[in-house]
């Protein structure tokens, strides 16, 4: 009896698991479409996409395995289009500067919130939470006013600086620091360690998880920046890829697919390397105060 029951349970579990995996694969379908699209010949693509883009109705017919795979789009993109590298570099530069700035400013702030008890701290923390939750559109005009005063509009600093002072990474890193046992910090103080020493030797080491979580979440967010460059960068040569890609016409679909794949690669790399931190970060971002 017990054996039968175990077999039944196991079968049910495997079936449920399978259903969820199939659903997950369906969710990831767009990637497969973009991958196959990027190696499909131009004429094939036109044929597939015409019903939607020309007539505005009907369904796209799609072959998961293209009949005549080709690398023509990648060749055009990577060898014949030097402008692509400028945009790619814009994306890299903007994202790295933002992340570096967020670490330099946000991590110490998170440490202050996690370790020191000062009157008014909870009030300030609430301000940070509210700011974290305000959408870009609500802070857009404020940022515009400052950037205009500092004459930074239409430079990369216009998208970098406001993002550096976003309070979201403070919140995530705070989650990591909070997990450090207080007695450990007390013991270090009794042993005569200075506050700065405690921060670098205990905080940064033990709170590494929270910091990396903030980096992974930040990368995925800023690699995908749309609203900010749209509002603050007029000059298209300054645009990041995330904003430029959708401008490519559908008749150039293969080219656009190939560019999408190149843009996807860094994000997938960060996702795969940092999945544990990503999950941890999601959980930290929801910690109770």
């Amino acid at each position: 009896m017990r054996l039968v029951r175990r077999i039944v349970n196991r079968t049910v579990e495997m079936t449920v698991k399978l259903i969820f995996i199939v659903m997950g694969v369906v969710i990831c379908m767009p990637v497969f479409l973009v991958v196959t699209g990027s190696v499909m010949g131009s004429t094939d693509l036109q044929e597939c996409l015409a019903p939607v883009f020309l007539e505005g109705q009907g369904f796209v017919t799609w072959k998961l395995i293209p009949q005549y795979p080709t690398l023509e789009h990648y060749k055009r993109l990577l060898i014949e289009t030097p402008q692509f590298f400028i945009l790619f570099w814009n994306s890299i530069k903007i994202t790295l500067f933002i992340l570096a700035g967020q670490l330099a400013v946000g991590v110490p702030a998170a440490w202050a919130f996690a370790v020191y008890d000062v009157r008014g701290k909870n009030m300030l923390f609430l301000v940070y939470v509210v700011l974290m939750l305000l959408p870009f559109q609500v802070t857009m005009l404020s940022s515009y006013i400052v950037l205009n005063k500092l004459s930074l509009l239409n430079t990369h600093w216009a998208v970098i600086l406001p993002a550096v002072f976003n309070t979201f990474p403070v919140f995530v890193a705070y989650g990591g620091f909070r997990a450090i046992p207080k007695p450990l910090i007390e013991a270090a103080r009794i042993d005569g360690a200075g506050e700065f020493y405690i921060f670098t030797r205990i905080g940064l080491v033990l709170g590494k998880g929270g910091i990396l979580s903030a980096v992974v979440l930040g990368f995925l967010e800023y690699w995908n920046m749309i609203e900010q460059p749209l509002a603050f960068l007029k000059d298209k040569a300054l645009w990041p890829l995330s904003l430029y890609l959708p401008e490519i016409e559908w008749t150039q679909a293969g080219f656009s697919f190939a560019a999408s794949i190149v843009m996807l690669i860094p994000a997938v790399f960060v996702f795969v390397m940092g999945q544990d931190y990503l999950e941890q970060g999601i959980i930290y971002s929801g910690l109770k105060q």
């Binding site: 767009p30 973009v34 699209g37 995908n224 559908w250 997938v268 960060v270 996702f271």
Partner: peptide, 16 residues
């Protein structure tokens, strides 16, 4: 699999 869309840049999926 379920988290992956979070990593996909909007620009990449927009054509889909």
């Amino acid at each position: 699999l379920y988290l992956f869309p979070m990593a996909m840049p909007t620009a990449t999926v927009v054509i889909v």
